[in-house]
Nucleic acid binder design. Structure first.
Length: 448
RNA sequence: GGAGGGAUGGCAGAGUGGUUGAAUGCACUGGUCUUGAAAACCAGCAACGGGGCGACCCGUUCGAGAGUUCGAAUCUCUCUCCCUCCGCCA
């Protein structure tokens, strides 16, 4: 969520910044709403002040045993006007909120202009792409040969975009999780957390998935206490547009970023608490609505996958240094696994809703002969913090101020598994185990 | 599933219709004292929003929402969450 003060004072800057993302901001509508808001708010508050003043006088008069009748009459006349004014204000506020909640974060000045993937900028590449003296297979073929990736079984059990991993490959998958967590906790100073996989709408609002991206999420009906049906004809008039079904659903987490970042929701940290760094392994659930036909082959894009997520909560001055650090931590995993990758700075138009700047790590997949995203590391600045009121106390001002939040994958486990399969394959379809993982695999050096 | 009890400022915890945005303690900030620190003492200290160049002024907020009232932390209703006991259970 943007600071509404920026919209009020520097609307042109906002327009320009959003244009960098390829978004044309409806300044006209905003200014109209804002003018209306100001007018109604001032009027409402004047009425409230008058009512409060008179009510206090009534209290005093009654205490002294005087006659409050004249004032009582005057104040009761304010009632209707005030109520109407308050309702009007509520409507305008709501429209403004809806508008504000739908505006994505403004890109940092170092973010390249652009609207799509093609405009992302390559920062660096790491590692040598291995050359094979045979035609490298992709993970689907390798999975078939070894019998350890079973898409048909998953289709039977669940449907498309699921997979069953079997045998030593499942073990390798588990080994990757241990390896990633251990590295981040023991070498990078993260605190490991284990979180709920079902989250509420407040949490999703906090990180920015709601209200705009509800279609991407799996909803879980929530058990509600039984309530009596209210006869429709009586009640329907009064139930205005504000009839959100707010807490009727839980949601499956699309990323551990949601529960972990929300640890900071409505908290005020002391300056010495920061930075906080959390590492969390979790499954992730995504409906993938709107991605029909995209990445249908293999386990690149699944409804359910596992990920080790890194989250930083930092002093606002340090968030860009933290972004470099966090990205570096994700890179370490790829380096230790000796998987070739490149680092991309996402262009403004390709960034997620909450991000001010994002680096993507893309791993080389020889079976597909291309780089594929395996981690996305973002600085959200105060965008999420404002939505969830995550603050720290500045001792210089003695006031609570917004923290900055960052998140990144360190790494996506399923895609890392694919990368190992494709990069470490042998001509007869076996998979070599990267050195650093062998201790997690009972010392073996090859599977398949 | 059954029976009770609760939710108030950063934290703990008073407050049951009228200058209560809220006693008190802790924490925090500034000061006195001290060689320095601690202790003691003095003072300050909720958040959010609006108006004004500004000194300031105003509004909202005591889990959330609705209601009663001239006036609600306090009364009514609904919801959410937490705690205790019993039952069941990985």
């Amino acid at each position: 969520m943007l600071d509404i003060q920026i919209l009020r004072k520097n609307i042109n800057d906002v327009e320009t910044a959003l244009l960098k993302r390829g978004i044309v901001f409806d300044t006209e509508t905003f200014l109209q709403l804002e003018t209306k808001r100001k007018e109604i708010q001032i009027k409402t508050q004047e009425l409230q002040a008058r009512r409060n003043k008179l009510s206090k006088e009534i209290g005093l008069i009654k205490k002294q045993g005087g006659d409050a009748e004249p004032i009582l009459k005057e104040v009761s006349e304010i009632g209707d006007t005030l109520k109407q004014s308050e309702q009007e204000l509520g409507k305008v506020q709501k429209s403004l909120d809806t508008l504000l909640h739908g505006i994505p974060n403004l890109p940092h000045e170092t973010v390249p202009q652009g609207v799509a993937e093609d405009d992302n900028v390559e920062n660096k590449t790491w590692g040598d792409r291995k050359t094979f003296d045979f035609k490298p297979k992709d993970h689907v073929e390798l999975g078939e040969i070894t019998g350890m990736l079973d898409f048909d079984a998953a289709t039977k059990i669940s449907g498309s975009r699921f997979v069953v991993i079997k045998g030593q490959l499942a073990q390798l998958h588990r080994a990757l999780i241990q390896f990633m967590l251990n590295t981040h906790v023991n070498e990078h100073g993260y605190t490991e957390v284990n979180v709920p996989y079902i989250v509420n709408s407040d949490s999703l609002f906090g990180t920015g998935q709601l209200p705009k991206f509800e279609d991407d999420l799996y909803k879980v009906p929530r058990q509600k206490a039984e309530i009596y049906e209210i006869p429709v004809d009586i009640e329907s008039e009064n139930k205005s547009s504000g009839n959100d079904d707010g807490e009727e659903y839980y949601y499956l987490l699309p990323t551990a970023e949601v529960p972990v970042t929300n640890l900071a929701r409505e908290e005020i940290f002391s300056a010495s608490d920061l930075p906080l760094k959390f590492a969390c392994h979790s499954p992730c659930f995504r409906s993938e609505a709107g991605s029909y036909g995209k990445d249908t082959r293999g386990m690149i894009r699944q409804h359910q996958f596992e990920k080790v997520e890194l989250v930083h909560m930092v002093h606002p001055d340090n968030s860009y240094a933290a972004l470099e650090e966090l990205t570096g931590h994700a890179e370490v995993i790829l380096q230790k696994l000796d998987l070739p990758y490149r680092v991309m700075t996402l262009c403004a138009g390709d960034m997620g809703f909450s991000a001010a700047k994002t680096y993507d790590l893309e791993v080389w997949l020889p079976g597909q002969s291309r780089y594929r995203e395996i981690s996305s590391c973002s600085n959200c600045e105060d965008f999420q913090a404002r939505r969830m009121m995550a603050r720290w106390r500045n001792l210089e001002t003695n006031k609570p101020e917004l923290i900055h939040t960052l998140n990144g994958s360190g790494l996506a486990v399923g895609r890392t598994l694919i990368a190992i399969m494709e990069n470490y394959q042998t001509s007869d379809g076996k998979i070599m185990i990267p050195d650093v993982l062998q201790e997690y695999m009972g010392g073996i050096s090859e599977i398949g």
